[in-house]
Nucleic acid binder design. Structure first.
Lengths: 229, 229
DNA sequence: ACCGAAACGGAACAACCGCTCCGTTTTCGT
DNA sequence: ACGAAAACGGAGCGGTTGTTCCGTTTCGGT
């Protein structure tokens, strides 16, 4: 995977970065991918610098804001998500395609906490992440609608339901336990009940984007009313 | 709710606490309940002290270890959980009883992050919490077995599956959004598929206690192998 | 080969947090 | 009412974390 993007290799004045700076930029992005995947997007810059083999100052110089780093890093990862949705949509069997996408989405988020945060919460990154995110929901929606048109997916769920479900399931177990997560993916697809001829209607409320966001950002739980003072 | 337990009102030498100390002890427990519910069991003692209206020193004097405070606080809350399981088991309809317990368990954990941590991870608290926890799993197991014997609950799920599922579902939305969570409770009970005559077999692995624990303690995710050095 | 500019690294600073310690206040038996 | 002991509060200490800053090193055009 290469991060050679023209936009990323020019300094503020439009001049190309010096060769050592370019090399370090790539080392930092590579390190950030690993560290963000393990620790989430709040990981310490010191850790990223150490893994990259550079000083902290270098990280801050190249990416003054955490969001700059996230934006540069996840643009490509979001493209990968879109590609996976489209691959699922290309499956001749709508149900199989949806199952595969859900299974992949759960594993991708389990293996990369940073990805699950970016997917859930629009507050991370900048325009590049925002553009990537914007492409995902419609793609999943068409996957969902195709399965519903085929009569295999219940009609009262949305693309956002799939997003919330995959985000939640990805939190089960450790990254090394895909089989465990598959168990609960199966339960979501199948249900706990032994047999059923038609879906029990869902409660009226449908989720909105913010409902997905508060899954990974527990600090934003506002429902309680904050402790006095 | 009263915390008047004989064990909690004696100092180390077996003498009763002074009146102001008893009063403050209750204020601290009351405050800890509120703060732990909102912020989880890692909440700062300063916050608890402020809400209780006492100094930090007083909190540390009465509960030298965080686990002491957790142990004193959650003994009763775990009794409540057991009572709820038993109430569900008393429902003449095994399926309705199970549904009610799951719905209640999800809401209880959504409203109290501390409770969900105590339920998931045996590492919190001391003997009193341990005893409370030990009573829950068998009680849920009998609820589960009754539903399976009645042929309404698929045979390949365990009490621990119910624990993991409720813990996960409780993380959806804010505490103020019970209807949103109910949507996904319904999906778990029902499944995404439109109709089904018999359950699709689950992947072979069954969860163990540790799998529930790592839901609420993301620091313990070990699957990745830590970043070098 | 040389020089100015760019980039580097990590020491250092400030903010923050958990916990302790001690001068002051409150309680309670006499 | 009084004195000893228990309890209180919050300032303060040591450790950690996010960010900056500057003396040194590296690069690249001439």
């Amino acid at each position: 995977m290469s991060y050679v993007t023209p936009s990323g290799e020019l300094d503020d004045a439009g001049r190309p970065l010096r060769r050592d700076a370019q090399r370090n930029r790539l080392l930092i992005l590579e390190a950030a991918r690993e560290v963000f995947a393990q620790q989430g997007l709040d990981a310490r810059f010191d850790d990223i610098a150490r893994v990259a083999g550079v000083g902290v100052g270098t990280v801050y110089r190249r990416f003054p804001d955490r969001a700059d780093l996230i934006d540069a890093l996840f643009e490509r990862e979001l493209d990968e998500v879109v590609a996976r949705v489209e691959a699922a949509a290309a499956d001749p069997d709508p149900w199989a395609g949806l199952q595969d996408f859900i299974a992949w989405g759960v594993e991708a988020q389990a293996a990369d906490r940073g990805l699950s945060q970016v997917l859930a919460d629009g507050g991370y990154g900048h325009e590049r992440v925002a553009r990537g995110r914007a492409r995902i929901e419609p793609a999943v929606a068409s996957l969902v609608e195709r399965a519903q048109a085929a009569g295999v997916l219940r009609a009262d769920v949305s693309a956002l339901d799939i997003g919330i479900a995959t985000a939640v399931l990805s939190q089960i177990g450790t990254p090394a336990q895909p089989e465990l997560r598959r168990r609960y993916v199966r339960l979501l697809l199948d249900g706990l009940v032994v047999r059923r001829d038609a879906p029990t209607p869902l409660p009226a409320v449908s989720p909105v984007d913010a409902d997905l966001a508060c899954l990974v950002e527990p600090a934003r739980r506002t429902g309680h009313g904050t402790v006095e003072n």
